[in-house]
């Protein structure tokens, strides 16, 4: 566990940069993390996925699987990969300030 500064605020992250305390997260931090992950501008579609990931995690204690994300977020799998080429579930979780998803699918 290390502490980094995101959007001017120190936060705790794991080795891969995932926030460990979702309550420390702000949207500005999300935008900063997106830029360092190679996504210059987060669109409304990006936020739809990020908000869905975050809400599911906060409501259920676990991030949705890729399959669930494709079926219930309102964004289909093909578009998910266009929005987040380096891994939709993983990146949306990171940008949304929740721990890395543990699912295998």
């Amino acid at each position: 566990m290390t502490t980094v500064t995101l959007a001017g605020t120190p936060v705790e992250v794991d080795d891969e940069g995932f926030l460990q305390k979702p309550e420390q997260w702000t949207r500005e931090m999300g935008e900063e993390m997106a830029r360092s992950a190679g996504i210059e501008k987060l669109t409304e579609r990006h936020w739809q996925v990020i908000d869905f990931m975050r809400k599911t995690y906060l409501d259920t204690g676990a991030a949705p699987s890729m399959r669930a994300l494709g079926k219930t977020s309102g964004v289909a799998i093909k578009e998910l990969y266009e929005l987040f080429p380096k891994g939709p579930a993983k990146l949306a979780a990171k940008i949304g300030g929740i721990p890395k998803p543990r699912g295998c699918v």
Binding site: S65, M66, R67, A68, G70, A76, I77, K78, Y81, P85, G103, C104, V105
Partner: peptide, 18 residues
């Protein structure tokens, strides 16, 4: 139950994922 799809859906998922 653990969200592993049937084979056809899995192949579609993999295709859609690039």
């Amino acid at each position: 139950k653990i969200d592993i799809p049937p084979v056809r859906e899995f192949i579609e998922m993999i295709g859609d994922s690039g």
